[in-house]
Design a protein around this nucleic acid. Structure first.
Lengths: 123, 123
DNA sequence: CCGAATCCGTGTCGATACTG
DNA sequence: CAGTATCGACACGGATTCGG
């Protein structure tokens, strides 16, 4: 953690596992909405309202907070168009696209669990 | 969801994305500690104290809560040995081992971000 | 009008103390 | 040693308000 300021509220990088790769990625995308936000961006650029429509349950407050984090970490780009009405577009950076293997793995396991009985439907 | 009781506090399966594979997996392992707990179990059976040592920051309350969820969903087995002092061991089920591709992807991206500059260290 | 900031109620989590 | 109970801290959601 190069900065002393708290930039990752989700996963406090503690003690002996700061070097664990899995823990390291989770400190970026392990919070409640990050992966779903990135999932949207893998399908194309998105505006704020489009996120809100695609992610039922998220609040504008949390959405902007997560997008600001992802932007600060270099995973997402925020573009403001000085128009009326105002328009803001978010897109993936090259760094952000690097998590594609994770999205693929998540999608494959999810597909498998949707087709076969999901664990939750087991007795 | 066979039960009417709330078994998945992490990700309320909302509206149009209940069928999304990624959202579906995250409803199981998308919460704060599940993946790190499973990471431990991929390296062998674990006792409660071993989890607490390997996951600095987790509380006994949350640990047992997550383990109970994972057990209920069929990803983890809980074995109680009637000894003194009491001993409880947790292990992965076959269902639990199905998330291995996710762990691999997380580990690889994490490794890459640790070797090259992590996004967080970018300006 | 859209994006975002603010106030407030709620639920989750961590720290501690305690029980079997 | 494993798990529960209580309490304070914090993140999130909903509604409202502001800014451009």
């Amino acid at each position: 953690m190069p900065h002393s300021v708290k930039v990752a509220p989700a996963y406090p990088v503690a003690d002996g596992q700061a070097h664990c790769p899995i823990h390291h990625v989770l400190s970026y995308i392990g919070n409640k909405w990050a992966i779903l936000i990135l999932r949207e961006l893998f399908q194309g650029n998105r505006r704020t309202n489009e996120f809100l429509a695609a992610l039922p349950g998220i609040s504008t407050k949390t959405l902007t907070a997560r997008l600001r984090e992802l932007e600060r970490w270099g995973l997402v780009t925020r573009t403001v168009f000085p128009e009326v009405p105002p328009r803001v577009e978010y897109s993936l950076t090259a760094k952000g696209r690097e998590i594609q293997p994770i999205m693929v793995a998540l999608s494959q396991v999810g597909q498998h669990w949707l087709v076969h009985g999901s664990p939750r439907s087991a007795p």
